[in-house]
Design a binder for these strands. Structure first.
Lengths: 207, 207
DNA sequence: CACTATATTCAACAACTGTTGAATATACAA
DNA sequence: TTGTATATTCAACAGTTGTTGAATATAGTG
């Protein structure tokens, strides 16, 4: 036996991967069950309806991610941080998730991108867990730029959020455009350059 | 009669809207036909398979958008442009599309966002029409930053592309986070702030 | 052993899916 | 008028969808 993992988790893992690639409507429960080598009815037994399964997949790592983010922000709090440090702290949990080497996390980040960019899922799923942490991040930005208009700060976060979402999606487009000089899977470089890029943009618009 | 539009175009319009919201797998041909007040078989008569219909929807405005982009770039060529001007020229076709006031264009831009962020569709659809213009844009950036590493320029474009994609998606998230101080539908402000933001980021990373 | 809660399978349901071929209608040219 | 190309409808197909209830197995407890 290669790995001793229970069926319930295997269903979650497979669903996570397939949903992240094909989206909610692009995957059937039967496909998930088949890939997980499990009977169709078993997915229903554990998770209920298809929507609940999707929710369960999303929730599993969402809370963990949000908690890490809160922890990092609290740790750095009151330290008179620079703009670069604030941004870095915001990105750190994602960096950590990827650095575990767990392919499940990589799939989840792609799923997160799918949810972030979908007009339907965004409202339903992002609000519950992530919006609170984002508001804290925006508040930290406001402290750094006390004279900036709220709207400008929010638009800047929007740009950063978009850049992040496309990174997490791992579409392979940057590989194609750069003739393989850059890799969609190279999160390290993506984060490393993102920090000074976003900091400069913020200073320009809000400074 | 309120509007005299032929059924073929009406199918395209409806498909464009529904695909942009629910994605390819989230919409059935029957839903499209029903919303277009047309028989199911008629969609097949005009466009063939479902995949061909999706392709037709995507292609209809893609070429127009790419052509406008090329035209703008050519017009501005050899004018010793500033970085801001180059970025503005790149965004101009999208701005123009939105300023027509045609809701169809708005739907299409959301569909474009869906394609840009999907690992599956990206490869298949973005390459044919858009990648060429993007390469020209990246080349223009290289002229401005002749000493910058190729990879850095590509990553910067990646960030810009992500910010753009999330804007086109109109998810409503910025409305929620900013307590309605900002609007997802406010493309004018989004573009206006995006230019200095991206220019500053580029200068920081590539300058 | 018997009892019980959990886990898993099987078979089936009604609804919906994309697609098609034949039948019918419409428009237009000769 | 007739002939013909285009447009539109209708009915049906085989396959897939999410979901469920009953049957069976398994594991753990007394």
């Amino acid at each position: 036996m290669t790995q001793e993992i229970n069926r319930k988790d295997r269903i979650l893992d497979v669903a996570e991967e397939l949903f992240s690639i094909h989206g909610y409507d692009g995957v059937s429960i039967r496909q998930i069950a088949s890939a997980a080598e499990v009977d169709v009815a078993l997915a229903n037994y554990y998770f209920g309806k298809k929507l609940d399964l999707f929710q369960a997949v999303f929730d599993r790592r969402a809370q963990l991610l949000s908690d890490t983010r809160q922890e990092v922000l609290k740790r750095e709090q009151g330290k008179q941080q620079s703009l670069d440090q604030v941004i870095e702290a915001f990105l750190l949990p994602l960096k950590m998730a990827q650095q575990t080497g767990d392919p499940g996390w990589r799939n989840y980040l792609a799923l997160l991108s799918y949810v972030m960019t979908s007009p339907i899922w965004n409202k339903e799923l992002m609000g519950k867990v992530f919006d609170k942490r984002v508001s804290e991040f925006v508040a930290a930005l406001k402290e750094i730029f006390p004279n900036a208009q709220d709207e400008k700060i929010h638009w800047c976060y929007h740009y950063m959020s978009g850049a992040l979402a496309l990174t997490l999606a791992q579409t392979g487009r940057i590989d194609r455009l750069s003739k393989n000089r850059c890799r969609s899977t190279d999160f390290d470089t993506a984060y490393e350059l993102m920090v000074p890029f976003m900091a400069a943009g913020l200073r320009e618009v809000c400074g």
